Computed example of a mutant assay.
Amino acid sequence: MRRIIGFVTMFFLAVTVVFGKSQENVIDITFNKLGAVYHKNESGNAVCKVIKANNDITYEVVVEIVDIDKKPIGYKKTYTLSSPFERYYYVPFQFSELGYYYLSVSFLHGDKVIFSKQEGFGVIPDVTLTKKDYDSPFGVGAHYARYGDWRVAEIQQALGIAWVRDVARWKDFIGTARNTPDPFIDYLDRHNICWLPILDYVDANHGWQDENGIWRWDEDVTNIKKYVEMNENRILVYESQNEPSNFAGWNKRWPHPQGQK
């Protein structure tokens, strides 16, 4: 009997120490995607593990999804939890709107919230996520410029993602009537996001040659320099080319002797 009592006592202590909470009741929320990052219209789910160690009180367990302003968006389930137990609640979701959301789980006794926990997750454009990105969601290439929807930065900021790799649309600002600094840089600065710009796509099929048949990109290089200077040298690190073998036609113009890429 002493061994049983000792085990129960150690269990209660372990619950308190492991989870770092003074309460005996514990909530743990786990999303099925690494980094809790989902793309628009992607099905996702979360599992809420609830440990009730107190035998004297019956709780209502409220599981709810709210938006970034903590306003309910429609999903809400209520469960009764009386005896000491470890239970799991499955929460499916799918969003057609970009945003940052919270999954909230609360213990209620009467109208009073005894204990609660919230975990956030982000819904961002599907063009930003590939299978590679799931391995490192905090280095996601969000492609705001290509997608044309800069709300993503606010979601990315809430997710804690610190940088983005995207195309620098210097051709939109050089040699045009606009001739103004790129507002995209200011936008990312306001959200404390670092930017790795891709400055050019060198196309072997549409480049130009001089009279000696030598391929040249002098005009592009000159305009890129203007773009960097126009933005007050805020572009200190950049990527000069994105996957030239795949998109720029180099394999067709100069094929590999063994047919490799």
Rank of each mutant, 00 (worst) to 15 (best):
I174E: 01
K131N: 11
Y147F: 02
L108A: 04
S43M: 11
V167M: 00
Q209N: 07
S245W: 15
F121H: 05
W217C: 12
L199A: 01
V17G: 09
S116Q: 07
D111K: 15
W217S: 08
N45D: 02
I185N: 02
S43H: 13
D166G: 04
G110A: 08
Q23R: 14
E232K: 00
E119G: 05
A46G: 12
I65V: 15
W208V: 07
Q260S: 01
R3P: 02
N223T: 01
R2N: 14
Q157K: 11
D220T: 15
V202D: 06
G20A: 05
Y79P: 08
P137H: 12
D220K: 13
V61S: 11
S82P: 14
D133M: 12
P72C: 05
Y75R: 15
G35W: 02
I68T: 14
Q94W: 03
F11E: 09
I174K: 00
Q258G: 14
V17Y: 15
N41P: 03
A36R: 01
S22P: 05
V8F: 10
I57L: 12
I29Y: 02
R190V: 13
V61Q: 05
K33D: 01
K225V: 03
Y89V: 14
L34W: 12
Y89E: 11
I235H: 02
I27L: 04
D220S: 14
V164L: 14
D67Q: 15
A142F: 04
Y100A: 11
V167K: 05
G139M: 14
G249D: 01
V152F: 00
Y144T: 03
S96I: 01
R87C: 08
A162M: 14
